[in-house]
Amino acid sequence: MSLPTTGRQYSFPELGSYNNLVVQDVPVAAPKANEVLVKTHAVSLQFRDLLVASGAYANSQAFPPNLVPCSDMAGEVVAVGEDVKQWKRGDRVSANFLLDKIYEEHNADIIASALGGARHGVLTEYRCFPAHSLVVIPDHLSYEEASTLPCAALTAYNALLSGFEPLKAGDTVLVQGTGGVSIFALQFAVASGATVIATSSSDEKLSVASKLGAKHVINYKKTPDWDEEVLKLTNGLGVDRVLEVAGNSTLQRSLNSVKISGSVDLIGALGGRVNVPPVDVVGPSVYKGLKIRGIFIGSVKQFKSMNKLLSGNIETTRPIIDKVFPFEEAKAAFAYLESQGHVGKVVIKVNE
Rank of each mutant, 00 (worst) to 15 (best):
S44V: 07
S94V: 03
G177W: 06
L310F: 15
G341M: 04
G289A: 11
K288R: 14
L186W: 05
A30G: 12
Y126T: 05
A146D: 05
S54I: 00
V239I: 09
A214T: 03
D265A: 14
E105K: 14
S249N: 10
A56N: 14
K308R: 14
P130C: 02
P278G: 02
L37V: 08
V264F: 06
N66P: 02
A108I: 10
K101C: 14
K215W: 01
S339K: 05
V175I: 15
A112G: 11
N59W: 07
T148H: 06
K88L: 03
S305H: 13
D322C: 04
Q176E: 15
S299Y: 04
Y57F: 15
V346T: 12
V300G: 08
G116P: 12
S2M: 06
G7S: 13
S202P: 03
E329M: 05
R273Y: 06
H106M: 15
H342M: 07
N248C: 03
V173W: 05
S285H: 08
R8H: 12
A159M: 09
V22F: 00
S263I: 00
Y126K: 10
S311E: 15
L337A: 09
L37H: 00
I137R: 11
N107A: 05
L309F: 07
F334S: 10
V282G: 09
A189H: 05
K168F: 01
V173A: 05
V135K: 03
G247A: 11
N20V: 00
L3I: 11
L212H: 06
